[in-house]
Amino acid sequence: MPQRGMALISALIFLLVMLLIVSANLFISQMSIKSAQAAQQQLLFEQQALAEHLSSVSAATQANIEADLIVFSRCPAGYAVWSELLVQCDVFNMATRLLSDDSRFAAGYSSMLLRQHLVAGEVLYAEE
């Protein structure tokens, strides 16, 4: 009965092929989920980097840093302007970088900040 054995083997081979196809499909679909998650993770990471950058910008503006300021020769145009002798402007470039724990993602943000300040000595302060 060689034909019967042949049919059984063919059926087994068919089943094996189907199993392979289904498992490959499963594997591929898992991969796609992973890659989808990766993109989402990167977006989240960049958002986190931006949030950290903005918070460090506001911290820097409150701390009144003096270092790394580039003195501007004149203040930008405005409506209620001041004499150059009384108010001067400088520009501060601030850059922050964030690297993920597994070193797979990196994001960097820069901000350009303008500081208008009263010229020391030109403005007096009332005594307490």
Partner: peptide, 21 residues
Amino acid sequence: RLEQFPRWLKLATYRQETGAH
């Protein structure tokens, strides 16, 4: 109000395009 000085103004924030994503 003079206590508002020094006054900060954010001119621009931009992403640094370093590395490949």
